[in-house]
Design a protein around this nucleic acid. Structure first.
Lengths: 222, 222
DNA sequence: TTGCTCCTCACGTCACGTGAGGTGGC
DNA sequence: TTGCTCCTCACGTCACGTGAGGTGGC
């Protein structure tokens, strides 16, 4: 009674929603070989193969690579693979969110290709090479840390952002920003936008609240 | 005085953070050719090339393909390209969010590879092929629409989910769910999870509030 | 002359898509 | 015999990475 149901490659393709070529590919890389073949070398998949295929599809739909899936089936821990994958997904979501805001900001603020390009260029320059452009990154960081401490003192003392002390800090910060931007207006604007919408995490001890406070103080500085 | 600054390929690579191979590639596909070459065929990039390169990098960092970037430079509207891209980014964020919840749910609820696989398989089966499994999709949809109307009537009348009328609707819904799941417990659970965490949009006229109401009513049905 | 940089092929990656040319009939 | 499905190469996609073997000196 071992006359079990068999599937030819086209049948399995139709049932699974994959293509015949995909099944060939999975066999080629050693991920799923049919249990048997006919005398004419036609592939015959059995129930075990089908089961395995659905698991492959499930993991693939989660975004695992075929190589990772192979490893999970061989001996790996699915849990570890999933945890690692979850972290990758989280990072990707973060990245896309920032990107989304950047694109939207660009779209909303200009119609002209030239202007748009300049703006995007400035933004990505800031995002990508941020620290690299500093003459001396360590010195620059120490300076921002110091400014951060001064600003935090203003905040703790309950001073409004328009107070003389807060404005003094803001003026020093503005000088640092202008220096960083190399005098490029688009870069200064891009920095302001990024401070608001995609605050860098843990940048020299600054947090989002401090950046908001700084932006308010900057509005009172000429 | 046209002795302008020139860059050899290695210099430009270092300055831009790209590899030499990448610059070769951009030339190969017609995206960025050096303004000139030496007698020994060495590439010489000028300021215009550098400018163009930074724009290419900016658009690439936004996620545009090299082909799209080429089109934008030739004649295309950057704005249209950005809008289209923004929509793609949005869709991708949605997809990853659902995925994220799915992975987390799976991780949180089991240690065993076997169980995890079965759970994930059930979920992706539901997500991917939802409607296909119905014997008659049109008839099924009409049925869910009818149930939706009955449920909405309960809600409008201000009845609590434990009321007799709501429970009657819930019992009918449960029957439909069991049928859809083909008697598979894992699939039923997966459906419940997805109703809560990744509600399908506009499924036979049901919205998220209705699904919450149904879930509450289901808790009062044995 | 010694290094370093540059050059042009050309194959590899990843997950398949897309024919081409020929054979099988679970 | 006619269709339909199956078979095995093998090149194409995308954005480069990675040598291999040889030449230039912006």
């Amino acid at each position: 009674m071992s006359e079990r149901r068999r599937w030819r490659v086209g049948e399995l393709a139709k049932a699974s929603g994959l293509t015949v070529r995909t099944l060939h590919h999975y066999e080629h890389i050693g991920l799923l070989a049919p249990g048997s073949r006919t005398e004419g070398r036609q592939r015959l998949y059995d129930a075990r193969d089908v089961r395995r295929l659905y698991r492959i599809c499930a993991l693939r739909d989660l975004g695992l690579s075929l190589a990772e899936i192979g490893r999970v089936f061989e001996r790996g821990s699915l849990r570890d693979a999933l945890r690692a994958h979850r972290d990758r997904v989280d990072a990707e979501i973060d990245r896309l969110r920032t990107l989304r805001r950047l694109i939207d900001h660009a779209c909303a603020h200009s119609d002209e290709t030239e202007t748009l390009l300049t703006m995007i260029e400035a933004m990505t320059r800031v995002v990508r090479r941020g620290e690299e452009r500093q003459a001396d990154p360590k010195q620059a960081e120490a300076r921002w840390r110091k400014l951060g401490r001064e600003l935090r003192a203003c905040m703790k003392a309950g001073e409004v952002p328009s107070s003389a002390r807060a404005r003094a800090v803001a003026r020093k910060a503005l000088k640092g920003i202008l220096e960083f931007a190399g005098g490029d207006r688009a870069t200064v604007e891009a920095l302001a936008f990024l401070r608001k919408h995609a605050p860098p995490r843990n940048l020299a001890g600054w947090d989002a609240a401090m950046m908001r406070y700084l932006d308010q103080a900057l509005e009172h500085v000429t």
